[in-house]
Every structure is written in structure tokens, then in C-alpha cells.
């Protein structure tokens, strides 16, 4: 089966950005802050895959559970040590946001040191690398192509199930809606937040671990993705996970396929402005709809409900 590389890139990239955007949104929902270190989790995932394949010679897919657990644990640690502590003391949203920036600086430097240590100890080349050769082939396609898509869809389904059917998920949604009300109902908010940080960290790290299989990676790759992640999350409306799915896919596709098409239409100079394309889409959407696509969705919901009410009313009147 032959699929043009640009489509593979689009699908893989969009899937990973979608997962990362969902995670970003989830953090925003429970902690009410944009987590600037979110992309850096992906950077850690990249180096987990790198270590397992290059240093230990394992299949890159072995890193999936390891990356998930490691990223989750790290994210929990960050929450316990920094974010949770700051919240307890009463640091405002901006203080927390700035602290995630500091965490991002810290973690990026740590990845750099790790890359240096690998070079020093194993004499292996660690900066920009790509692991396409280590990937498995499924009927002529790179394994990461179906896998990233499946991973993305599975994340959405599992999250949907988690949020609607399990107690923890319902507690999470309640916390996102109104923490004080949720705590009155007996929900341990600290535990809910801890769980959501574990989940987002793990997912981000897992997404990152798939990245080097198709894209070029270096210690700053993860932190460089944060603007795309934020754009995806914001496009979806920041407080709706289903919006983030849509937003992530729009951003991923616009960075890849749309840029390529625009270059074909208008000429090469568009390519030089590529990082701006998702941003421009975002800004246009925000100008018309300040609350992102979630706003559209909510308005639609409201209209549906009010319509239903009108129908109900008229039915009731008829009945009377």
C-alpha cells in the first residue's frame, strides 16, 4: 500500500497533537492553569524511546507502558512538590502559570544533561535523531501510522468512558465544574487533581514516545511544540475535552496538509510563515467566537434546549 508521506505525517502529527491538546485541556480543567511544561513531558517521552531503542536495542513500542508510567509519575511529582504546594499556600493562577514555566526550563535542561550523559557514557549520537529505521512495517506502511491513529482514538474512547462511567471521572468533571461544590459533596479534590495530573503526564509522555518514530527529535522538540498544543486546546475552547479533540486535529492538519496546499496555491513564501498558520486560524476563530469552538457548541446546545422547551410548552398548552 502506498500512501504519500505527507498524509502519513498529517495523520501522525494530528493524532499526537490531539492527545497532547486533550491533556493540556484536562490540566486546565482541574488546575485552572495553562501548563507550559506540557510539551516538555513529550520531550521526556522522546528520550525514553531513544534510550530503549538505541541503548538497549528494544522495539520502540516497548516504551509505551514505560513512558506512560514514567510521565505519569513525574507529573504527579511535579504536582505534589510544586503546583499542589503553591495552591495550598494560595498562589494565584498567574503564579502557578509562571511556576510551570520554571518547571519547563528545569526539565528542558535536565533532558539536555541526560543527552550529554548518554554521549559521554555510550558514545551515541543524541541530537537531532529520527527512529524511522527502528519502526516496524505493516503492509508497507510504517507502524507508527496506524498506531498513532489507534492511540488517539483509543485515548478519546477511554477518556470518554472514564469521564462518564467511572466514579473518578465523574468526580473529575464535578471538580472541573465547581471545586467547592464538589468538595461539599465529599469529593477529595486533592486526589482527583493528582489523578488528572498523572493521566495528563502519562498521555503526553506516551505521545512523545511515538514522535521520534516519524519526526526529527532533539531535547528542545517537546518544549517547542507547546504553542501548537495550546492552539489546539484553545481552539476547542479550553474547557471542553471534546473541543480539544477537534482543535488538535485542526491544528495538526493545518500545520501539515494545509501549509502544503497553501504553498502550492500561493507560492513558497507561505512555508516561511508556517508556524503562524495555526495561530492565524486560532486568532480568526477567537475574534468571531471568543470562547473557541466550545462557544459555538454551547450556543447550539442552548438553542436545542430552548427549542425543546418551546415544544414542551406548546405541548403542555395543547394538553391544557
Amino acid at each position: 500500500m502506498e500512501i504519500s508521506a505527507i498524509y502519513i505525517s498529517t495523520v501522525v502529527y494530528s493524532s499526537l497533537i490531539t492527545v497532547l491538546s486533550i491533556g493540556f485541556t484536562l490540566t486546565y480543567l482541574t488546575a485552572k492553569i495553562p501548563n507550559f511544561a506540557h510539551g516538555t513531558y513529550a520531550g521526556i517521552g522522546i528520550y525514553i524511546t531513544f534510550s530503549l531503542t538505541r541503548l538497549m536495542g528494544l522495539s520502540p513500542y516497548v516504551s509505551i507502558p514505560i513512558a506512560f508510567l514514567f510521565g505519569g509519575a513525574l507529573s504527579m511529582l511535579i504536582f505534589i512538590l510544586v503546583i499542589g504546594t503553591l495552591q495550598k499556600i494560595g498562589g494565584g493562577a498567574i503564579v502557578l502559570t509562571i511556576s510551570t514555566l520554571a518547571i519547563q526550563i528545569f526539565m528542558t535542561a535536565a533532558i539536555g544533561i541526560y543527552a550529554f550523559w548518554v554521549l559521554l557514557t555510550f558514545h551515541t549520537y543524541t541530537q537531532p535523531f529520527i527512529l524511522r529505521d527502528n519502526d516496524i512495517q505493516i503492509s508497507g506502511l510504517p507502524g507508527v501510522f496506524p498506531f498513532a491513529l489507534i492511540f488517539c482514538i483509543a485515548t478519546v474512547i477511554v477518556l470518554h468512558f472514564l469521564l462518564t462511567k467511572t466514579n473518578m471521572g465523574i468526580a473529575m468533571r464535578a471538580t472541573a465544574e465547581d471545586p467547592s461544590l464538589a468538595s461539599v459533596l465529599g469529593i477529595n479534590i486533592y486526589r482527583v487533581q493528582l489523578f488528572s495530573w498523572f493521566l495528563t503526564g502519562g498521555l503526553a509522555c506516551l505521545a512523545g514516545s511515538l514522535l521520534p518514530l516519524w519526526f526529527s527529535s532533539s531535547p528542545i522538540t517537546g518544549s517547542g511544540m507547546i504553542t501548537s498544543i495550546m492552539a489546539g486546546s484553545l481552539l476547542g475552547g479550553l474547557d471542553n475535552i471534546y473541543g480539544a479533540i477537534f482543535g488538535g486535529f485542526v491544528v495538526g492538519t493545518s500545520e501539515q496538509l494545509l501549509t502544503y496546499m497553501l504553498v502550492g496555491l500561493f507560492g513558497n513564501y507561505i512555508g516561511e510563515y508556517r508556524p503562524l498558520i495555526p495561530m492565524i486560524i486560532l486568532i480568526i476563530v477567537l475574534i468571531f467566537e471568543p470562547r473557541g469552538l466550545n462557544g459555538v457548541y454551547e450556543r447550539w446546545q442552548v438553542r436545542k434546549i430552548s427549542k425543546a422547551r418551546v415544544v414542551e410548552k406548546s405541548n403542555a398548552q395543547e394538553g391544557a
Binding site: K32, Q87, K88, I89, G90, D178, P179, S180, L181, S183, V184, I189, Y190, Q193
Partner: peptide, 8 residues
């Protein structure tokens, strides 16, 4: 009413 601290 969004601070965990305040309601704790």
C-alpha cells in the same frame, strides 16, 4: 470559589 485552599 475555585480555590481548593479556600474551601479547605
Amino acid at each position: 470559589g475555585k480555590s481548593r485552599f479556600s474551601f479547605r
